[in-house]
Amino acid sequence: MLINDKRYRSYTFQFLALMVLICLMAFLGWNLMQNLAAAGLNISYSFLGEPAGYDINQRLVEYNSQSTHWRASVVGVLNTLLVAVLGCLMATIFGVIAGVLRLSNNWIVAKIMAVYVEIFRNIPVLIWILIINALFLAALPQPRAFRGDNPEATMLFDAFAFTGRGIYMPKPVIYEGGWIVVAALILSLIAIFVYRRYARKTLFDHGVVIPVLWPSLAILFVPTLAMFFLLGSPIGLEYPALKGFNFKGGIWARGSLLSLWFALSIYTGAFIAENVRAGIQAVSKGQSEAAASLGLRPGRIMNLVILPQALRVIIPPLISNYLNLTKNSSLAIAVGYMDITGTLGGITLNQTGRAIETILLLMAFYLTISLGISAIMNVYNNSIKLKGR
């Protein structure tokens, strides 16, 4: 029998466990359908085509109250992805800086970073979201403070207005030919990536140091600015201006987005800082001493010797930190930021009464995002792991 055959025993038990799991899920699904039928209910997603009937304050695409529930869900998805991407980027910056500074030889700097880590990671993120949102409302002036001949507050460079309602900033306006400049910028960024990889490979293979900073800046700005002026400045800026009781024009980053973004970033950054510290300490001290004996400066030792090896320790727990930040963004409704939980799992659920359908869609969305983040980070993790000969 397969159970007694050592070659196939493990596969046999896995197959049996899979069959039991499938039968269990089938039973739960059948039981759900029976209960719904008994209650005179059915699973239907036709409500997604009905008018939503509510407004969404922060949105990246066109939307109004007469748009469908599906459109409202798309707006919520984009809002969730926006705060998740921005949060992961800023949390990584905070975490790397704090993790490195925790190992500083300066006692004061190291202790300040230790206090930051211990305070922020031991207090629930919801409390930090509420605290930071309250600070934004209390510390920043309202738009009316910018009115008058002697205003209480002024715009920064006549372009940025920091208010309790959010930050108003210039909005890029692309005219004819502007996309060519954008394409030149994208190609410049790709060229910088290729050049830096070439410089690193040359350093590792031949020990020759190729300048990186100034050539990278030249590659970024020279082609882009050349195309910008040759095409007659096809990209302009729309500045915010105070009209009536609020600013009009430009980009409005609402206070709810900023407070949520900042709170998630500094909270998750505290966990990332510990991962960075552990990763750096996992590298043998002899590595840095050997690099120093070759005449490398401390900055180059950290960038070329310590961090590349520490990444093998940092990346696996970093994936969990990114996943936690994305899922913690569902607390956005606490400050009025309309993410997918606030739209599909909040107002849409309450208006339509389709609890099962909306919850299933929410579960599918967060599962997809989590698996996507895990897949991308695992690919990167495999690219930096030690390769056997």
Rank of each mutant, 00 (worst) to 15 (best):
residue 253 A to V: 15
residue 204 F to G: 00
residue 275 N to L: 08
residue 325 L to F: 12
residue 352 T to Y: 07
residue 240 P to M: 04
residue 201 K to A: 05
residue 180 I to P: 00
residue 344 L to S: 04
residue 355 A to W: 03
residue 7 R to N: 12
residue 207 G to I: 12
residue 9 R to S: 12
residue 38 A to R: 12
residue 361 L to Y: 08
residue 360 L to G: 10
residue 135 L to R: 00
residue 366 Y to A: 10
residue 277 R to W: 09
residue 177 G to I: 03
residue 174 I to P: 02
residue 159 A to E: 03
residue 266 I to N: 03
residue 274 E to L: 13
residue 91 A to T: 08
residue 211 P to R: 01
residue 103 L to R: 14
residue 315 I to T: 13
residue 335 V to W: 05
residue 215 P to I: 01
residue 122 N to P: 03
residue 71 R to A: 15
residue 165 R to D: 06
residue 100 V to Q: 06
residue 242 L to K: 04
residue 133 N to A: 12
residue 73 S to N: 10
residue 370 S to Q: 13
residue 209 V to N: 14
residue 129 I to Y: 03
residue 383 S to K: 12
residue 176 E to M: 02
residue 189 L to F: 07
residue 72 A to N: 07
residue 14 Q to T: 10
residue 185 L to W: 02
residue 259 S to M: 06
residue 269 G to T: 11
residue 21 L to T: 14
residue 380 Y to G: 10
residue 140 L to G: 05
residue 321 N to R: 09
residue 69 H to A: 08
residue 239 Y to A: 01
residue 49 G to H: 14
residue 234 P to G: 01
residue 26 A to G: 07
residue 365 F to Q: 10
residue 247 F to L: 03
residue 118 E to Q: 15
residue 79 N to W: 09
residue 25 M to H: 07
residue 134 A to K: 01
residue 286 G to H: 07
residue 12 T to V: 11
residue 153 A to T: 04
residue 162 F to S: 01
residue 291 A to M: 04
residue 116 Y to K: 08
residue 154 T to N: 07
residue 322 Y to W: 15
residue 353 G to L: 07
residue 338 M to Y: 13
residue 245 F to K: 06
residue 220 L to I: 00
residue 290 A to E: 09
residue 368 T to D: 07
residue 206 H to C: 06
residue 70 W to V: 10
residue 110 A to S: 15
residue 202 T to L: 04
residue 14 Q to F: 09
residue 228 F to I: 00
residue 389 R to Q: 08
residue 46 S to T: 15
residue 99 G to M: 09
residue 268 T to E: 14
residue 103 L to T: 11
residue 244 G to S: 02
residue 325 L to I: 13
residue 92 T to L: 15
residue 131 I to F: 10
residue 254 R to Y: 07
residue 271 F to H: 13
residue 366 Y to G: 11
residue 256 S to K: 03
residue 214 W to M: 14
residue 269 G to F: 07
residue 33 M to I: 00
residue 162 F to Y: 10
residue 99 G to I: 06
residue 369 I to K: 02
residue 361 L to V: 05
residue 348 T to F: 05
residue 218 A to S: 04
residue 12 T to E: 08
residue 130 L to P: 01
residue 14 Q to I: 13
residue 3 I to T: 15
residue 176 E to P: 00
residue 106 N to T: 02
residue 80 T to V: 11
residue 169 M to K: 02
residue 250 G to D: 06
residue 219 I to W: 00
residue 87 G to C: 08
residue 319 I to V: 15
residue 39 A to W: 01
residue 345 G to C: 12
